[in-house]
Amino acid sequence: MSSVTTRSSRPPAGGPRDTQDPPKRRPKDDTRIALIFIAPAALGLAVFLIWPLIRGIWLSFTNYNLLTPAEFVGLANYRRLIADPIFWDSMKTTVYYVLLNIGIQTAVAMVIALLMYRLTQSTLLRGLVLTPYLVSNVVAALVWVWILDTQFGVGNQILGWLGIDPIGFFTDSAWAIPTIALVNVWRHMGYTALLIFAGLQTLPPSVYEAARLDGAGEIRTFFSVTLPLLRPIMALVLIMTIIGSFQVFDTVAITTGGGPANATNVLQLYIYDMAFDRFQFGYASAMSVGLLIVLGVITAIQYRLSRADSSDMS
């Protein structure tokens, strides 16, 4: 299921996991000491990952308000979920956000990665593009709320000089989701660019040589050589960024809190409200399971695509 390589998207077949096992000449069994070494991590895995996973699924079949014991209600939460217009609305909002966020972010990151690859190998430059990623979502959200403030934000001042009326970036329901998507593009584009950059470095230089000899220009080379070769890596980048994007919460909670009029009520926010404002942990868990399924399906689809494409590399 998993394998690792350095700077290569396609590990050799057969799983490198076992290649460096201790040599056979020492067939000693280390079970006792291994148990000591593995105990803390195994405890963490069991208690804070596997158990919550099972419990989350179990809670989705119950009514639970934290105070009284969970009461099994079968599929009631799921029936409610299917009939809940707010759930579907927030699912739509989330998908809209993900499409904008990932679409723009991937395109911008690709441009940054290509520019860095073609122009300079400077570590300083790579460090600079990464700076927004160092601050928390909260700080990123706050600075943009200030810059884009309708009355006193410098963003609207500049628009004013250009003769454009002030835009309520976070207060106008048509603008709120695109603005939040762009704030997160700002924070993540450098990081994503470095991922793509690392992918570019794995491409064999010889293919560029060939493209040049055939007289292909920059743009032609990008679409005919770079992009097809990069497809498996892009698939991987997309899986990770899309999964992260679907879990958006921090930026929305800080900037709009779901408003105006539920226009930015993304799924995580709705789940959080359901659990912590209305104490309906059972229903909130059912929605979490719904999100889990969506993410699972997306991962499976993209995993297949990336596998299917991996033959491009050789």
Binding site: F48, L49, P52, L53, R55, L59, Q268, S285, L291, L292
Partner: peptide
């Protein structure tokens, strides 16, 4: 994000 709610309960 899936483990947050159950972990909170725990």
């Amino acid at each position: 994000v899936f483990t947050l709610l159950p972990n909170f309960v725990l």
